[in-house]
Amino acid sequence: MTRAPASPRKRPLDSFDRAILRILQRDNKTPQRTIAEAVNLSAAAVQRRVAAMEDAGIIKKNVAIVSTQAVQMSITSIVQVQLVDERRQTVDKAKALFAQAPEVQQCYYVTGGISFVLVVVAPDMVVYEAITRRLFADNDTVKSYGSLIALDRVKTGAEIVIPGA
């Protein structure tokens, strides 16, 4: 269940919050009593803090990371996309399209001569070609795109380094 707003509200994180976040990033199914013991708080205090961080948008979502091999998604591609222009409506249209596409695992609006970098998954090249046609080739906001097909997933995940004590 996701209760987070679109962008995190200001809420200062103390050392307890940071310690809780580190544990939850490794395994968000860690029992609250186990977290409480690790950070020297009560289970009720951990529960309140987690709920507050969810409400503030600090914890954006609780998800399962699924093996691409287990679900036969053998193609992973990093796609660089250059838009025809960088006007707000062009960028917003591309953002909306890429965000709703279920094959797009990650999407970044970037600087440096290209507009977007996406991570796209597909079961095979036939499906991947159809995805590229739908999202890029037949898209009037896209000037050009290039794909890099991953040979191996060396490291994936969503864990970030949380600074502080």
Rank of each mutant, 00 (worst) to 15 (best):
R9D: 01
A4F: 01
P5L: 01
I78A: 07
L41N: 05
E54R: 14
S67P: 10
E54Y: 07
A96G: 05
V66Q: 09
S15P: 03
R3M: 02
L21C: 06
E54C: 08
F16G: 08
A19L: 05
V50N: 05
I160C: 13
T76E: 12
S144H: 11
V84N: 02
V79N: 02
Q100Y: 11
S115I: 13
D14T: 10
D152Y: 07
A4D: 02
K143N: 12
A56L: 00
R22M: 05
P123E: 10
E54S: 09
G157R: 06
S7I: 15
Y128Q: 15
E103S: 09
V127Y: 15
A99R: 11
L118R: 06
A99D: 07
R3C: 00
Q32N: 09
S15H: 13
R48W: 07
Q80I: 01
E103Q: 11
R22Y: 04
K155I: 07
V161G: 00
V154M: 08
A137G: 03
V71E: 02
I75C: 02
K95R: 11
D17H: 07
G113R: 00
T141Y: 03
P12Y: 06
G157C: 12
R87L: 08
V142S: 00
I58M: 15
P102G: 08
V91M: 13
E159I: 15
V71P: 00
M125L: 15
D14H: 10
I149P: 04
I114Y: 12
T68H: 15
R11N: 09
D17V: 01
A101G: 12
R11C: 03
V46C: 11
L13K: 04
A38R: 07
T30P: 06
L135G: 11
L83M: 14
V161S: 06
I160L: 15
L97W: 03
K155A: 10
P123K: 15
A6S: 10
R3F: 03
I58K: 07
A38V: 01
Q105H: 13
L83C: 13
V71W: 01
T90I: 01
Q82F: 14
I23D: 04
A70G: 08
G112C: 14
L13F: 05
K61D: 10
V91H: 03
A38K: 08
A94M: 14
D27F: 06
P5T: 00
A70R: 13
R9L: 01
S77T: 04
V104S: 08
E54N: 13
P123Y: 06
F136W: 06
D27A: 02
P5K: 01
V63R: 14
A96M: 04
S144N: 12
M125I: 12
A96Q: 03
P102A: 14
K10L: 06
N40P: 04
I114N: 05
A19M: 04
Q32K: 13
A19T: 04
I78W: 11
A52C: 02
S15M: 10
K10N: 04
E54H: 09
L135T: 11
G112P: 15
